[in-house]
Design a protein around this nucleic acid. Structure first.
Lengths: 252, 252
DNA sequence: CGGTTCCTTGAGAGAACTCAACGTCGGTGG
DNA sequence: CCACCGACGTTGAGTTCTCTCAAGGAACCG
C-alpha cells in the first residue's frame, strides 16, 4: 500500500443513482433533506487496493467519506509496521466518525476491493448541522451505532465466537434480505484475522471446524450459512448483530 | 448487585455548583448554553455499589446520564452470568451514548464507588437538538471520542500494554494536572481485569512487575507513576491516551 | 509458464488462564 | 474487645488456547 493519498477527480455524484441505495445513511429521509445532503457531497473517488490510502493516520480530517460501492478498511500501523484493522466499511457506511472530535484522523483508510467513496467536506457538514437537525441526528445515530459495535467486539471472546459473530454480521450487512444465500466476503482471511485479533491460520481453522460441524459452507471467499441457529448461538455472547434494529430511536 | 433500578428522588441540580466542574461536557460553552443544558437536567440521583443498577441491559433508554461524582461502570451480563465491563465513567462523562441509535440500552450501569449522576430525559435532549447545534456538537464529539477510545482498546495487546494504557488513562482522567502525584483508583483489581479482558491475577502480576521495574508504586488502590516515560512507551501501541486533545474540532 | 498472493494444515512454543492457597483489611455481632 | 466473615489483593503451579514457524496446494496474473 502506497504512502500517499489518492488525488480527487471531479465527478459530481447524484444520490438518486447511488449503488448504495437504501443502505445509505440518508435512506428514509424526506427528498428535500436528501437533496440537501447531495449538495454537501463534493465529489466521489474510485479506490483500489494497493493503490494508495484514502487518508493516513495523522492526516488532517478535512472530509467525511461515504462508501458508495466496494469495501474500505480503516486501520492503524504500529511502530513495528504491523497493520491493525479497526473496521470494514460497506456501501452506505460513513468513514471518519471516530475523528469528529479531533482535528486529525486517528487511523488510515484504504480499499479492500475496488471501491468508490463520496467525499463530504467537514466544514460543510459543520455548517449544515446548524440548519438540519435531521441529518445531524443521523450522524449522531451512526456514530452511536459504531460505538456500540466497537464496544461489543472489544470483549475477550474465543476465536469461534469472534468468527461466528463476524460471519453473521457480514451476512446482515452485505445481504440483509438473502438469508442462507451464498455470500462473497470482500476481504482476505488475513484481513479478517487482523480485524478479529486472530492469526490468519486460526481463522482458517475455525472456518474449517465450522464447516465440519455443518454450520457453514465455504470455498475461499464464497460462504454460505447452513445452520444459522448454531452460528447465532456461538455469536450471541459477542452481541454484535442487530445493531441496526430500530433506527429512529433518537427522534422524539 | 440487585436486579432493580434505583428510584429517582427529586433534587434539582445546579450546574454552577457541580463537583465535576470543568470536566463536564458543557465546560467552555457560553453561560447561556450551559443554563439551557441545566434546564434539561431533570434531577440527580445518588448511586452506591451493590445497591441496584442505574439501568439494566434491555431497559428502555429514557435518559442520558452525566456523572457528577464518583465512578460508574457500564457492563453486560452474558448467559453464564459473567459480567463484562464496557467502560468506566468518571465525573463529567456521559452514560448512554451507545444507546442513541437504539430504543433500549445495550448494557447495564452501576456504581463502582459512591456516586452521583445527573438525569437528562432523552426526549428533551432530542427536542433541544433542534434548537442548539452547539450542544448537539458536543454530544456528537463525546460519542465520537468514546468510539475512538473503544476502537483503540479493541486491539490485541499484551497484558503489560493494556495495564500501562489503563493506568495512564486513569491518571489523565482523574488528575490531569497532578502528574506524578499519588492516585486513588476507584475500582477493584477484578474490575480492572474484567475491563481489560485479563484475569484478576494477571493484573496483579503486571502491577507487581511494573513495581519491581521501578515504573509504578502501588499499595492496594493507591498508585503513583514513577517512570512516566517507560509507562507511556509500553502504552503507546494501544493509542488510548490523548483522546481529548483538540476539542472543538467539529466546529467550523 | 514462473511469480505472487492467498488458503490450508501440521507441530511446537508461549502468554494468559484456571485452580488453589494465603495474608490483609474492614465490618459485624457476640 | 475480639472472633468471625467476606471481599480484596497477592503469589505459585499446571493447563489451555492461540500464536509462530514451516510447508504445501490452489488461484490469479503478467
Amino acid at each position: 500500500m502506497g504512502a500517499h493519498s489518492v488525488p480527487f477527480d471531479r465527478c459530481k455524484p447524484n444520490c438518486s443513482m447511488c449503488p448504495a441505495g437504501s443502505r445509505c445513511f440518508t435512506s428514509g429521509l424526506p427528498d428535500q433533506e436528501i437533496s440537501l445532503w447531495n449538495d454537501l457531497v463534493q465529489t466521489h473517488v474510485p479506490l483500489f487496493p494497493g493503490h494508495g490510502a484514502l487518508f493516513n493516520a495523522g492526516d488532517e480530517a478535512e472530509n467525511l467519506y461515504l462508501v458508495r460501492a466496494g469495501c474500505v478498511k480503516t486501520y492503524t500501523i504500529d511502530e513495528e509496521g504491523n497493520e491493525r484493522i479497526r473496521g470494514f466499511h460497506l456501501p452506505g457506511d460513513l468513514i471518519g466518525l471516530d475523528a469528529l472530535s479531533r482535528r486529525h484522523h486517528p487511523c488510515a483508510a484504504g480499499a479492500v476491493e475496488a471501491s468508490q467513496v463520496c467525499v463530504i467536506p467537514r466544514a460543510r457538514v459543520a455548517a449544515e448541522l446548524q440548519r438540519s437537525p435531521a441529518l445531524m441526528q443521523r450522524l449522531l445515530e451512526r456514530t452511536s451505532r459504531e460505538l456500540s459495535a466497537a464496544l461489543s467486539l472489544s470483549g475477550d471472546f474465543t476465536a469461534d465466537q469472534r468468527v461466528a459473530a463476524f460471519v453473521l454480521s457480514m451476512q446482515e450487512r452485505l445481504a440483509p434480505s438473502a438469508s442462507g444465500q451464498k455470500l462473497r466476503l470482500p476481504m482476505t482471511r488475513r484481513d479478517i484475522g487482523n480485524y478479529l485479533r486472530l492469526a490468519t491460520e486460526t481463522v482458517c481453522r475455525v472456518i474449517t471446524r465450522l464447516e465440519q460441524q455443518g454450520v457453514l459452507e465455504s470455498r475461499d471467499r464464497a460462504l454460505a450459512i447452513r445452520d444459522r441457529r448454531r452460528l447465532a448461538g456461538l455469536a450471541e455472547p459477542v452481541g454484535l448483530s442487530g445493531s441496526g434494529a430500530d433506527y429512529f430511536a433518537l427522534a422524539a
